[in-house]
Design a protein around this nucleic acid. Structure first.
Lengths: 215, 215
DNA sequence: GTCTATATCCAGATAGAC
DNA sequence: GTCTATCTGGATATAGAC
């Protein structure tokens, strides 16, 4: 009788082609803008005619969705939890730097993952789940760094996207905002510590809104 | 002889129609997404056929450009310099709150003014000049609040866009990040003061990276 | 100043031959 | 699995009548 082959060469080939298509899509998004993506351009770049793409993806939005999922997985892969030391300032700096560097490295990817600028696109539940899981992981790690209040996490993400956004919009390719990362970490941690100290002695700090430093 | 009329009713009517067209364009941008703007839709909304728009704007990009200029002017008009008191924390809070509220009030406007997501669009020099002038004014006012270093201003703008971005992307219509504004101001001002104190005594602070609070 | 008609082009998507 | 051919609809923009 015929033995089952170990590898499914058909499926492998198919996955490779899908990856090729997505690579082409990313290249166009980076060069022409995420919203400028067209099936014709993608097809031409991989040496196909546009209708052939439908053998691999159901629609243009399905391509966006696959790109979204891929971007999320790249984000997960970029994390460096193993380099955390237990020192809050070091670890928060590590996480923030990783985030900002990842985002500024590819503005189109940042736009797809973190902004809502493509009319009609929203990630499928499966793709979105990848992103939610990663955010949970991020929150958990930040909590071990002392960012335990929801507001602390939100301030952290605001700093991350703010530095990223300014860097991409106003100094693409440079480091004008990237180089503020260490400063931002110090600022954030100082602030969280100050708030923690204040909440320990709520009576003392009451009404003394300026002039005196906590601790 | 024929006296010159005081008012040019023709020109007035024309400007009014242009304004009507822009209003329609903004409405579509808000409802369907900035990138989803089409001349047909705009025309239909003002009761015209698409070609008639060319009597008022040279191209679709010219409409985007007029929207950009209009948005910049609205930003200028939203400023409340007259409410500044001279107290740094109050004034920085005022400016930051004004910025974030202005931006979150209209996500499409924020996208057009502060992000680069429309393929092929960039503001004309005349429109861009409005924006540059406003940024200069902003920097000058922030300088009177003690944000004198370029990095301080950059940190301020990063905080502003970060809070705005997160608010728009992850809690549209809510206030999850907006309510962090006061906290952010305190955090920023504390940090700037700490840096200023440190730079006054560079020798003492050298190597003492944590543990001791400045001042 | 606005219209109709049209030019030109491009988009996403489908049918069916090979 | 990829192609050609085509459908359908949309886009921006122009020409010219009224």
């Amino acid at each position: 009788m015929l033995g089952e082959p170990i590898r499914d060469r058909r499926a492998e080939r198919r996955e490779a082609t899908k990856a090729e298509i997505l690579d082409a899509a990313w290249a166009i998004a980076r060069e022409e803008g995420l919203a400028a993506l067209s099936l014709r351009d993608v097809a031409r770049r991989v040496g196909m005619q546009a209708p052939s793409l439908y053998g691999y993806f159901d629609s243009k939005m399905a391509i966006y969705d696959a790109m979204y999922a891929q971007g999320c997985e790249q984000f997960v892969a970029a994390e460096r939890w193993d380099q955390m030391t237990g020192d809050a300032r070091h670890d928060i700096g590590l996480i923030l730097r990783t985030m900002v560097q990842f985002c500024t490295a590819d503005a189109a990817r940042y736009q797809l993952l973190f902004q809502r600028t493509i009319p009609g696109f929203e990630p499928s539940p499966e793709s979105y789940a990848i992103s939610v899981a990663e955010l949970d992981r991020l929150s958990a790690h930040l909590a071990t760094c002392g960012l335990t209040e929801p507001g602390d996490i939100d301030m952290f993400t605001a700093l991350g996207t703010g530095l990223t956004d300014q860097q991409i919009s106003n100094d693409p390719g440079g480091d004008r905002w990237v180089r503020l990362i260490d400063d931002a970490v110090e600022m954030l941690v100082d602030h969280v510590e100050k708030k923690a100290a204040r909440s320990k002695r709520p009576a003392r700090s009451n009404g003394a809104r300026n002039g005196r430093k906590a601790r």
